[in-house]
Amino acid sequence: MIVVTGATGNVGRALVSQLAADQLPVRALTRDPARAQLPDGVEVVRFAGPDEPAALAAQFEGATALFLHLAAGGDGAPALLAAARDGGVKHVVVLSSIIVDYDDATEHPLHVAHSRLERQVRESGLGWTALRPGAFSTNSLQWAPQVRAGDTVRWPFVGAVSSPIHEADVAAVAAVALRDPAGHTGAVHSLTGPANVTALDQIHAVGRAVGRELRVEEIAPEEVPASMFAHVPPEMLPALLRSLGESVSSDPELTTTVRDVTGRPARTFAEWAGDHVADYRA
């Protein structure tokens, strides 16, 4: 049995779907099972934290592997990992971030959060694999409200460069590590998409996918409303905007990890946009 935390998130949902398609037993943990809408045959269970010790333990009965999302970590991670170990889990695949690769970013809030979670996993006594994806292609869903409302997208730092990765590729690497823990124990997999693209390139790719010509209006960072980055905690927004500014005209290092681990190339951003057309239509 493979337990997946964050099962209705972008990576978690893709992972659950891939494991279910391979007919592997999956227990999906989510805070709202009634709204999960996961594939048939998946055991959907309400996520329980350390304040519910009996339910926490029950989540891992008969389990052998765990996919751990940051949202299930935090202060409760040690107790969750101990419950997993007691329930029979032998291996954890932890979703981290590529920012942990960079020693010069140790003060960044994302580095702090993800490096802490990795440390908790390493100290758990379980076998582990760390996945460190870079920018997610799903970050581009930030433009969806503007695309639904019209043909103009207002955005800061349109020349910001990233190598966005499809959530399905992160899930595919996770699935390999969960199916073959011995081959990935102690591995740190840094994951990127196959190419570097600017924010401007991505917006135009979204436009082509939805069959419209989108106009782009660059705005100053001080004009950015918090609602433009609704998924980002307010205290992290200044650091994020600094990171975007620093990435303009940059040339981030690409990895071949998706191909190396799964045997197939990472999906392009254009492929991701094609997969998400419905998200941009009213």
Rank of each mutant, 00 (worst) to 15 (best):
T5M: 03
G6E: 09
A7L: 11
V11T: 11
G12D: 04
R13G: 08
A14H: 14
A14V: 07
L19K: 05
P25A: 14
P25E: 05
V26L: 01
R27M: 13
A28L: 05
T30P: 00
R35I: 03
Q37K: 13
L38T: 09
D40N: 12
G41P: 06
G41W: 06
E43N: 03
E43I: 02
R46W: 03
A48N: 01
G49M: 00
P53L: 14
A54R: 15
L56T: 03
A57R: 08
F60K: 04
F60L: 09
T64W: 09
T64I: 07
L68I: 01
L70V: 10
A71W: 14
G73A: 08
G74E: 09
D75N: 11
A79H: 02
A83G: 06
R85N: 03
R85P: 00
D86G: 10
G87F: 02
G87I: 02
H91V: 06
L95N: 03
I98M: 15
I99Y: 07
D101L: 05
D101T: 08
D103Q: 10
T106F: 06
P109R: 05
L110H: 08
L110S: 14
H111M: 08
V112E: 10
R116P: 01
L117K: 02
V121G: 05
R122H: 10
T129E: 01
T129N: 01
A130R: 01
R132F: 02
P133Q: 00
G134Y: 05
S140D: 14
S140E: 13
Q142R: 15
P145T: 03
Q146K: 05
V147S: 06
A149L: 07
A149S: 13
R154F: 12
V158C: 07
V158E: 05
P164Y: 04
I165F: 04
E167D: 14
A174E: 00
A174H: 02
A177L: 06
L178S: 00
G183D: 05
H184R: 07
G186P: 02
V188W: 06
S190T: 08
S190N: 03
S190K: 00
L191Y: 00
P194Q: 01
I203S: 00
I203P: 04
H204T: 11
A205E: 14
R215H: 09
E217S: 14
I219Q: 12
A220M: 09
V224W: 07
P225I: 07
S227A: 15
S227T: 15
M228N: 13
H231N: 09
H231C: 04
V232C: 11
P234Y: 11
E235A: 15
M236I: 15
L237E: 10
P238G: 01
P238V: 01
R242M: 10
S243T: 14
V248Q: 04
T256D: 15
T256F: 14
D260A: 13
T262H: 10
T262V: 02
T262I: 12
G263D: 11
R264M: 05
A266D: 03
R267K: 15
R267S: 14
T268H: 11
T268E: 08
F269R: 03
G274M: 02
D275V: 09
V277E: 02
V277A: 07
R281F: 05
